[in-house]
Design a protein around this nucleic acid. Sequence first.
DNA 1: TATTGTTATACTCTATAACTATA
DNA 2: TATAGTTATAGAGTATAACAATA
Lengths: 160, 160
Amino acid sequence: MAIDPLGPASALAPTGHGVERVDTRYLEGLIGYNARRAALAVIEVFLARMAPYGLRPVDFSILSLITHNPGITARQLCATLGVLPPNMVGMVNRFDGRGLIERRPHPRDRRAHGLHLTSEGLALMIEAERTAEQLEKDVAHKLTLAQQQTLMDLLQKIYL
Amino acid sequence: MAIDPLGPASALAPTGHGVERVDTRYLEGLIGYNARRAALAVIEVFLARMAPYGLRPVDFSILSLITHNPGITARQLCATLGVLPPNMVGMVNRFDGRGLIERRPHPRDRRAHGLHLTSEGLALMIEAERTAEQLEKDVAHKLTLAQQQTLMDLLQKIYL
DNA sequence: TATTGTTATACTCTATAACTATA
DNA sequence: TATAGTTATAGAGTATAACAATA
């Protein structure tokens, strides 16, 4: 596809009038653009709904992985989520300071710690995951359940 | 869906062993997580392929909108892409300084400028959009063309 | 020699307040 | 009174280098 094959707008158009309606068709034909816009739209709702729990998207991802993988190490969280180790330290420290997780000695590596939810952390995550699931319903309300599954399957074919 | 309905991992599991394989099934069932991961995967390739043109994803989006909407204003770019006006200024200035665009007087509003590609900017964008289209083919190589279209349609139902 | 966790730090991205010129 | 563009600045997010303890 070449530059501007889509209708009247053209790089050589006369300059004597403004742009009435912005033509976004080119960008909307790119997977990366659509994925980024959809992610930002979901994140916007996420930030608002998770604010009562003090969880941003990455916080939720980390705590959810600890929830479903008790004993996971910081290094494993980094590898799974694409977070760099120096940036993980502060987040884990904050969860620890909030009493949501605890670091236990790792059974086979004295350099590492196994991360576990506290009972307070578990109580928070039960509510947070419930909120996340309601949020999914709301942001995807235009899609059937089958379409939602199709969407996730196709997205995973991009990034996995 | 409640906490950890997915198999052996549990918040109450014994701590005597590390996590062998990280269980990501819960997160992979969330649309927001999948959209963000896919967007980041595409952006990673984008950054590498567009580096020769000195274009980051938002730069490309802006110049592409100017390409297909000659005379568009900075305010319209902000509204379309979700960029805040103070953050748009520097980008437009850099494009101007690089000789890629020019600001012409707006025909009906003396506060605004109509943004237009220069011939250098057009030459760059022809190459950049060609690169973007090849990039699409590569990151979506596991999907048929029909699946790619389905993916974009479903994503747009989330954010539009 | 490589890896885990960590500190320090720099760079980029995003957000808020306030100003000017014009509508 | 509202809007387009702009400046200054603060905050969040992401990046690299280097170190101690352990593998």
